[in-house]
Simulated assay, not measured.
Amino acid sequence: MRSDRVRLFQTLPHACGYFPDRTAQNLVIDPAAPHLDQLYGPALERGFRRAGGHLYFPYCSSCRACTPCRIDVERFQPSRSQRRCLKRNADLQVVESMAGYNSERHALYERYLRQRHPGGGMDEADASDFRRFLTAPWSPTLFLELRQGPRLLGVAVTDLSLHGLSAVYTFFDPDETERGLGTFAILQQVELARRRGIPWIYLGFWIEGHPKMDYKRHFRPLQIRTIDGWVDMP
């Protein structure tokens, strides 16, 4: 992604989604660039993330807290608590489905946002919001549906490339917290990557000490991207 081939834009400062007293800015790859599907894998390698049709990287003037992280699929072994999570959810079926909107998924998405992220600006998401945030016409996306019989309990929005699998977003039944469906979804994405010979699972950004991001460090070996490239988290 050399600068003479792909244009990068910097957003205006906006409210930070993680620290209420900070502002944030992103670098965004030109959304009108041709062949974004071909740029996606190399962008993941460089720490970028997809939100809707945009590939972005946090680039804040006074903060570098957001650290790209990824799971080494070949070396990953579930911890004791993760094995218990697999056992708790042994009654679920994991269905690889085409990405896209339907009323069943949207109803679950709305319930999840209203109970888990009230007042966050997304909790009144309509059909167009669903499509705009979770999918993109150029993105190689599938939905891993977590089902108990006919009942939809969760959806792991998953992007695939030869360079890696990106865990874009997971939403699930907020009344099923004891199952640990977020953890279960990542474990299923690990298995999907293994079946397809994909070496990395990109989990977006890890923020040291942040309660919403702390879960990521439990998927070891976890790599983080530094100025020297990707290194194992200590």
Rank of each mutant, 00 (worst) to 15 (best):
W230Y: 08
R147D: 08
I201D: 01
A185N: 13
R132Y: 05
Y202M: 02
A15K: 04
A51E: 05
V168K: 04
F76M: 05
R179H: 10
A99F: 03
R194K: 13
E110F: 06
R217D: 03
R49M: 13
Y56R: 06
H35S: 15
P150V: 08
L44D: 04
V95R: 03
M1G: 14
M1I: 13
D232S: 14
P68A: 08
R116W: 12
A90V: 11
D214V: 12
Q10Y: 05
W230D: 05
Y18V: 08
L92K: 09
R151L: 07
L8C: 10
F48K: 05
E178W: 14
T135Q: 00
D214W: 05
A185P: 13
P20A: 11
L27T: 11
R196I: 14
I201T: 02
A90D: 15
G53W: 07
L160W: 10
D37W: 04
V157G: 01
M122K: 12
E74Q: 10
Y202L: 02
W206E: 00
G119Q: 11
L153W: 09
T177S: 14
R220I: 08
T177E: 15
Y215F: 14
E178M: 14
P42F: 09
G154H: 08
H117V: 11
D4T: 13
P137I: 10
V231Y: 11
S103A: 12
